[in-house]
């Protein structure tokens, strides 16, 4: 008995609407963030992550409104990422009802931002999102680098070192996405997940590549992740959160049921 490993569905939000097609049975409005959040809460999601993919910063206010609406009805932790660049962005999201914000590009542009945000708002609400890609050749020892712009632009920063540095700066959690696996349904990059999880003292959320329920369990058991994040396998109703949890429990993982 003890702390449960978490399952976190991730929703992409554009102009206040959930995109990339959520296909629940009998859902009235597949683009409505509140309705989808409520559905995931009912299924037993441990947290929810919203990724604001709105291109224009003029539309950030829309995301604030989404968070306010969801927080008024769904009483589980909410994380918001995408376009968090200033302390004021963090404050607006937390005041709207987010529990954590996830910082990605802004941390690479200016690592001190993570320190400032953690000092001002507490480590517990600062998640650093890391998008990493393997850069080692065949037969070389494993090595991953941080990439930006959806995995297209290398930064030369070593992913494990970066995770360590970010936790020293005050990140309370790491959201780790393998850009090699994202969207492939081939499972997490387990070596990457394990390398990061063992390098830092804070919880690590594994992301990128989930296609089966065994992938989720592998992320915990082999990757040593503390939480697993997935989008499409839940959105397209291939599996419910509860099915995923029962499967993980069957493999000896402690979950909240």
């Amino acid at each position: 008995m003890g702390l449960a490993k978490r399952i976190i569905p991730c929703l992409d939000v554009d102009h206040g609407r959930v995109v990339k097609g959520v296909k629940f049975v009998a859902i009235r409005d597949a683009g409505d963030p509140v309705e989808i959040a409520r559905r995931y809460d009912q299924q037993g999601a441990d947290e929810l992550t919203f990724l604001d993919i709105t291109a224009s910063s003029d539309d950030r206010a829309t995301m604030v409104h989404v968070v306010e609406q969801v927080a008024a009805e769904v009483f589980i932790p909410l994380t918001v990422g995408g376009g968090i660049r200033t302390l004021d962005d963090v404050r607006r999201m937390l005041n709207a009802g987010a529990d954590k914000v996830s910082i990605n590009t802004a941390a690479i542009a200016r690592p001190e931002f993570v320190r400032e945000a953690a000092e001002r708002f507490g480590n517990q609400c600062i998640v650093v999102a890391i998008d990493a890609k393997a850069v080692h050749g065949e037969g070389e020892s494993p090595h991953w680098e941080i990439f930006t712009h959806g995995g297209r632009r290398p930064t030369g920063i070593d992913a494990v070192e970066w995770a360590r540095q970010m936790t020293e700066y005050g990140a309370g959690e790491i959201l780790l996405t393998s850009m090699d696996r994202d969207g492939t349904k081939r499972g997490f990059d387990l070596a990457l997940t394990r390398a990061i999880s063992e390098a830092v003292s804070v919880p690590v959320i594994a992301s990128g590549g989930v296609g089966t329920l065994d992938h989720l369990a592998d992320g915990i058991l082999i990757g040593r992740a503390d939480a697993v994040l997935a989008a499409s396998i839940f959105h397209f109703a291939e599996y419910t959160i509860e099915q995923a949890k029962r499967h993980m429990q069957g493999r000896g993982i402690e979950v909240r049921l």
Binding site: M1, G2, L3, A4, K5, R6, D46, I76, P77, N123, Q124, G172, E173, S201, V202, P203, D226, A227, R256
Partner: peptide, 30 residues
């Protein structure tokens, strides 16, 4: 074990305090 202690853990109720009413023993809280 990671620190911070983050996520859903069980709370074992040690008495029948009024604030535990209707909450199953060993329920998980965030």
């Amino acid at each position: 074990l990671k620190v911070p202690h983050m996520g859903w853990n069980q709370v074992h109720q040690l008495n029948d305090h009024g604030l535990w009413q209707g909450i199953p023993q060993d329920s998980r809280f965030y």
